[in-house]
């Protein structure tokens, strides 16, 4: 079997390091790219470099931004007393799409994961603590995932931030809006029952 020319193999290897791209997809993409019009490839390459060079992390909240601080942290109309803690910068986009949250965000950059060697010092927890007093935060909303590690991180944060004297809340867990009971799994249903509200 003849091997792929070295440049294609190199490109394949680089692409396969991206998330969600296995060796086969990487090879298909590489073979596609090398047959493209050269100007098109140049545009792609420039877009990649531009995006990487212009995007930075907001020093305050950790969101991906072009300006420092990010538009959300720089927006005076947003409620500084509400701080929503999320795992990844991507989660901010999801919450912003809902359009109901008017406070600010803080990106942890992951969750506690002893099995992967991620501890409190690897997360932006110290930065979170440092924000509470100066920004006059009154409520911290934990919007972490509800898997084992997400829940454990929530418990951990609740305890660690307790001395700061701010109100700690977490997102409610329950039925997805607009769907019937039949689509909810048992754990979701039992948590929805636990978190029921008076009408």
């Amino acid at each position: 079997m003849t091997q792929l020319p070295a440049p294609i193999a190199l490109l394949t290897a680089a692409l396969s390091r991206l998330p969600g791209i296995g060796p086969r997809s990487a090879e298909r993409l590489a073979l596609h790219v090398v047959q493209l019009d050269p100007t098109q490839v140049r545009t792609l390459a420039e877009a990649l470099i531009q995006a990487r060079e212009r995007i930075v992390r907001c020093e305050r909240c950790g969101a991906l931004t072009e300006s420092q601080p990010c538009p959300i942290c720089g927006d005076d109309r947003r409620d500084a007393t509400l701080l929503c803690v999320v795992e990844r910068a991507l989660d901010i986009l999801s919450l912003e799409k809902s359009g109901t949250f008017k406070g600010r965000y803080h990106v942890l950059g992951g969750k506690l994961s002893p099995l992967n060697g991620v501890g409190p010092d690897d997360l932006r927890i110290a930065a979170l603590e440092a924000r509470l007093q100066p920004e006059g935060v009154q409520e911290v909303i934990l919007a972490l995932g509800s898997d084992v590690e997400g829940d454990a991180t929530s418990h951990y944060l609740a305890k660690r931030l307790a001395p700061a004297g701010v109100r700690m809340t977490r997102l409610a867990q329950g039925l997805p809006a607009g769907s019937g009971l039949e689509f909810a799994d048992e754990l979701t249903l039992s948590r929805a029952l636990e978190g029921r509200r008076a009408l």
């Binding site: 002893p114 099995l115 409190p120 084992v148 829940d151 454990a152 418990h155 305890k159």
Partner: peptide, 27 residues
């Protein structure tokens, strides 16, 4: 099983972080 594995990993670390351990204990 996952909570248990995580907790055991914490207990095996050279310096056990009690607060972190507590988070997984609750789970």
């Amino acid at each position: 099983t996952q909570a248990l594995k995580s907790r055991n990993a914490l207990l095996k670390s050279p310096r056990v972080d009690e607060a972190q351990l507590d988070g997984f204990s609750q789970e």
